[in-house]
């Protein structure tokens, strides 16, 4: 009895112990991904299936959101620029904002909501209905089949979705600019490409890779560690979204510091 009391005694406090244990678990999970991703079996078919689920099935939502972001952002920026008679700078301003920050951020946040929750719920429900145990007892590595494939798919598809969102948002912006400033398509895109640099596009893509990895691994981690039946599945889906979004903002902040350091070095 005394041994049990000793064993369950918190090291710092119950909440802090739980937090640090969770953190250590999460690091072990990420470490396991990097250990397993290089070795066969590679599960190409499942990666492709997940790419289709994550990429292609997100297109309608991403298209609508990107398009609206382009229109709204252009509309909201116009009054400030028109005060200085600088509305001709709209394409340049919009392109920098979209490519550097809004495209990756909007895409990642939408994917965290749509894809992250679906991964968390799917793996969570597989966990509570013993489907993951069933893989294990059939000598199949469930981590490889479920976690590695989904994380690879999100890491590959989010940058592609970001490029697509950038394009759609710029089209939305062009329609708005064309209606108000009578700027032609070629003039609009000449100004867009003059304003952005290789570093803008490159950093945006690298950042998107990190966002994609975060969405995938967080969704898988939360699902893989869910418990308490169907209630646990709901919690896993919810926690996937909240944690992914929180990490995406932190990563955005860090990326901004790094890119600015490179840009102004």
């Amino acid at each position: 009895m005394s041994e049990n009391i000793e064993r369950n005694k918190p090291v710092i406090s119950k909440k802090l112990d739980k937090f640090f244990t969770g953190l250590a678990d999460a690091f072990r999970f990420v470490k396991r991904f990097f250990q397993e991703v290089w070795f066969p079996p590679y599960e190409f078919k499942e990666v492709l299936r997940q790419c289709y689920e994550i990429g292609y099935r997100s297109l309608p939502l991403i298209s609508l959101t990107g398009f609206i972001v382009g229109i709204v952002f252009t509309n909201q920026s116009r009054p400030s620029l028109s005060e200085f008679g600088a509305t001709s700078w709209l394409p340049a301003l919009i392109s920098i904002a979209i490519i550097r920050a809004m495209g990756p951020l909007v895409t990642a946040l939408i994917a965290a909501g749509k894809v992250g929750s679906s991964i968390g719920a799917e793996i969570g429900s597989m966990k509570v209905t013993e489907q993951i145990d069933a893989m294990e007892v059939s000598a199949i590595n469930p981590f490889k089949y479920l976690v590695v494939t989904r994380t690879i798919a999100t890491t590959l598809m989010i940058p592609i979705l970001v490029l697509y969102t950038d394009f759609v948002a710029l089209i939305g912006s062009f329609i708005n600019v064309n209606q108000n400033e009578l700027v032609s398509l070629s003039t609009f895109f000449v100004q867009v490409f003059e304003a952005i640099s290789f570093l803008d596009v490159f950093s945006s893509l690298i950042k998107s890779l990190v966002f994609g990895f975060t969405i995938g691994i967080v969704g898988c981690y939360k699902g893989y560690n869910s418990s308490n039946g169907t209630e646990g599945v709901g919690k896993a889906a919810n926690a996937s979204v909240v944690m992914s979004m929180f990490l995406i903002f932190i990563e955005e902040l860090l990326a901004l510091q790094i890119v600015n350091a490179i840009r102004y070095a």
Binding site: S125, M126, T129, E130, Q131, D133, A134, V137
Partner: peptide, 10 residues
């Protein structure tokens, strides 16, 4: 191993 809830992959 035949699981209680069958554990068929959904």
């Amino acid at each position: 191993f035949a699981f209680q809830a069958s554990a068929l992959y959904d």
